[in-house]
């Protein structure tokens, strides 16, 4: 495995709720390697979502450093963050969050629109991306005309279209049934491994963790334990070498 693409150093996040101070993330240090599928697992209130938000630059840590691709996220202003996200970050939401007024194709091109990519180029790339997520026939449908699974596929296509270094997924299957959940996880991890992209998934569903290289179990704002799944790695290696022989 390659270098550490995400480095978190002693990060703390406090919230003030009236007079009470809540410690959502309490001094976490964590490195995520390039190409790794990292799963943040924990119950609600464990601080996993806050940690994801901190990594994605949606919130600023009260203390500590977050370095992605050698850049200090916590020191960036809004404009720098926007430029950074355009270039390095993809995001998959639990509730898909597609823009209702735009078609599937336009939703997928949106990150490229913000980057100022030409119509021709971005349409081409978006079509490829939609094909990759299995939605060739639905390019001109609006989100309201699609099922949850289809919407999440569009959302995944949108997250990957920039060819980002890191893709964050916040409970990506929280609103989906079991069958679709597996389809979606296959899709995300498949896309990520194809381009050696790093994947950080937040979930409370243990089933999903079997897709991860590493499971970070969180509790009360701290890392309780980190499990590595070597078996899966080995299995994949066998499959790959087998494929080579054939």
């Amino acid at each position: 495995m390659g270098k550490n693409i995400i480095r978190i150093k002693n990060v703390k996040k406090l919230y003030r709720m009236g007079t009470e101070v809540i410690t959502a993330v309490n001094g976490i240090s964590l490195n995520v390697q390039q190409g790794e599928v990292c799963c943040l697992f924990g119950k609600s209130g464990s601080g996993k979502s806050t940690l994801l938000n901190l990594m994605a630059g949606l919130e600023k840590p009260t203390k500590g450093e977050i370095i992605i691709h050698n850049k200090h996220i916590e020191r960036m202003n809004e404009n720098q963050l926007a430029a950074f996200r355009q270039q390095y970050i993809g995001f998959v939401f639990q509730s898909y969050n597609l823009l209702p007024t735009l078609t599937a194709l336009e939703n997928v091109t949106l990150p490229l629109i913000f980057r100022g990519v030409s119509v021709k180029e971005r349409t081409e790339r978006a079509k490829e991306m939609l094909k990759a997520v299995g939605l060739e026939g639905r390019t001109h449908h609006k989100p309201g005309e699609m099922s949850g699974g289809q919407q999440q596929r569009v959302s995944i296509a949108r997250a990957f279209i920039n060819n980002p270094q890191v893709v964050f997924a916040d409970e990506p299957t929280g609103n989906l049934d079991t069958k679709t959940t597996y389809e979606m996880m296959d899709l995300i991890t498949g896309l990520a491994s194809k381009y050696k992209q790093t994947l950080v998934i937040v979930t409370h569903d243990w089933e999903l963790s079997e897709y991860a290289d590493r499971i970070v179990v969180m509790m009360d704002g701290k890392i309780e334990k980190i499990e590595k799944i070597e078996q899966k790695k080995m299995l994949q290696n066998v499959q790959q070498s087998g494929g080579d022989v054939e």
């Binding site: 994605a56 949606l58 809004e78 404009n79 926007a82 430029a83 996200r85 355009q86 970050i89 995001f91 939401f93 969050n97 823009l99 209702p100 949106l110 990150p111 913000f114 980057r115 949108r158 997250a159 920039n162």
Partner: peptide, 16 residues
């Protein structure tokens, strides 16, 4: 509000 947030997360600048 939510839509604006989404746009920001996927790379819209303040100017956009």
């Amino acid at each position: 509000t939510r839509e604006i947030g989404v746009m920001k997360v996927i790379g819209a600048s303040l100017r956009d």
